[in-house]
């Protein structure tokens, strides 16, 4: 395995760790934004490419440039790259390869959206992922948690093809039906 491939693997693992619950479309979009911004600044290129530069200095630059413009997840990923001396992956020569690599790897993983009415705690998310993984045993999956108050109660799980709807919104009619059935039985 070449050094570059090894670095790309490490970078991808860091990305998965930081942006665990973040959708791949947004990840790719933000990585492109970062690469573009760095590409147009000679000073930034130099800073990211230099191996002798103190990593704290790179982190400060990342903080100044991207803190409010990108998601927390991708911001964390940039800091993790700096921490692991892998900021050079975002220079003009490497960024395209990094983004392509991440994109290819991400599309090998099945992405599911777990839509709930309220934000769920990390522990609870982990619990849900374990449960969902027991269904998709033969596939590598990522579960993206989305909050939609209109779900009201319950959840909706969605992949590329199927929607598993366990929400109040949909099941309301079902509950009403079962209620009427019971009532009719009582009347009879």
């Amino acid at each position: 395995m070449s050094t570059n491939t090894k670095n790309l693997n490490i970078a991808f693992d860091l990305l998965l760790a930081e942006a665990r619950f973040y959708p791949r479309s947004k990840i790719i979009n933000e990585l492109n934004i970062i690469a573009d911004r760095i590409k147009f600044s000679g000073k930034l290129q130099e800073l990211f490419a230099s191996k002798s530069v103190n990593k704290e200095k790179v982190k400060i630059a990342i903080n100044t440039l991207f803190k409010d413009d990108i998601s927390e997840e991708i911001f964390g990923f940039l800091l993790a790259l700096a921490e692991n001396d892998l900021s050079e992956l975002f220079t003009v020569d490497n960024s395209l390869e990094l983004i392509d690599y991440c994109q290819n790897q991400l599309y090998k993983i099945k992405e599911l959206f777990f839509i709930s009415p309220i934000p769920l705690s990390i522990n609870f998310r982990e619990k849900m992922i374990t449960k969902i993984k027991s269904v998709f045993v033969d596939e590598e999956i990522r579960v993206i948690f989305i909050v939609k108050p209109s779900v009201v109660i319950g959840f909706i799980l969605q992949d590329e093809k199927v929607l598993y709807d366990y929400s109040f919104k949909t099941n309301f009619v079902y509950y009403l039906n079962s209620y009427f059935k019971k009532k009719l039985e009582t009347i009879k």
């Binding site: 709930s116 769920l120 609870f124 619990k127 849900m128 449960k131 969902i132 269904v135 319950g154 959840f155 799980l157 598993y164 366990y166």
Partner: peptide
């Protein structure tokens, strides 16, 4: 949600 995910 936990009850429903078990059903799922």
């Amino acid at each position: 949600i936990e009850k429903l995910i078990n059903i799922y």
